[in-house]
Design a protein around this nucleic acid. Structure first.
Length: 153
DNA sequence: CCCTGATTCGC
DNA sequence: GCGAATCAGG
């Protein structure tokens, strides 16, 4: 399973969303949590670093008014609205657009259902790939390296 | 024991 | 670059 742009986007998003490596791995499918963590490190977003650029220090953004843009654009034109991490609303799609460490970085910003971090379009991207396996009840750890206990008889 | 991420290391 | 094995912690 190769790390396609889409999969990487999902990875970055879910990771920044706070999901654990095993959760992400299970969602993507075809990869283990080790692979996810390895990729995460390789991407340089370990430690749950903020997706936003390493802003040294915002000169005290007064913006006391959480005026979010209630945009309703088509998925095809997403990217038009430059929702930054500071302008994103709670019920707006938080799908990352562009490099997290770039000025171009912003969020989709489309209307998202309450509780859902993404709009329908990106939600499908993130949740569509595989939906069969959600259960975590069966943690893949049957390993149980049989103890080589042998009697020295 | 279950889990978590972090790092190493052979591929 | 990739991910399993391993490490280190909760």
């Amino acid at each position: 399973m190769a790390w396609t742009e889409e999969r990487v986007e999902v990875l970055k998003t879910l990771w920044s969303e706070g999901l654990s490596a095993s959760q992400i791995a299970g969602r993507l499918g075809g990869v283990t949590r080790n692979a996810v963590i390895g990729k995460v490190h390789r991407l340089g977003l370990s430690g749950r670093a903020a997706p936003a650029a390493p802003k040294p220090m915002a000169p005290k953004e007064p913006a006391p008014e959480p005026k979010v843009r209630t945009v309703s654009m088509d998925p095809a034109t997403f990217g038009e609205g430059r929702m930054t991490v500071s302008t994103i609303g709670t019920n707006q799609c938080k799908w990352p657009i562009g490099d997290p460490a770039s000025e171009e970085f912003h969020f989709c910003g489309q209307g998202a259902a309450s509780g859902k971090p993404y709009c329908a379009y990106h939600s499908s991207l993130a949740f569509q790939p595989n939906s069969a396996r959600r259960e975590r009840v069966r943690t893949k750890a049957p390993a149980a390296i049989a103890a080589p206990k042998r009697a020295y008889n």
